[in-house]
Amino acid sequence: MRQVIDVVALNVILVVFLIVCALVVERTKDLISAVIIFSAYSLMMSVLWLVLKTPDVALTEAAIGAGVTTIILIAVIGRTKRYEK
């Protein structure tokens, strides 16, 4: 019983963090900050996949979401403007 409550609490914390991250990414005007927050979102999503017992997806999410997507988006920002109007 105690264990079930712990897992549910962890899930709630992770999902609330994800929702806050998603809202903040949409609100941020500095695009590099937005990319870094999105990277934190991906990392939390990876932990959530692990809690949901899909380690395969968690591994891919950590490599793609937190690694490659961040680098590619920052490279794109380097070729365009940093601040949103």
């Binding site: 380690p55 395969d56 591994l59 891919t60 490599a63 490659v68 680098i71």
Partner: peptide
Amino acid sequence: IILNGHISPGGGFAGGTMIGTSLI
């Protein structure tokens, strides 16, 4: 990760991404 793809989590895609990230 690539070589253990058939007996543990991960596989060609995740391991290949890691090698690509190291080259990046």
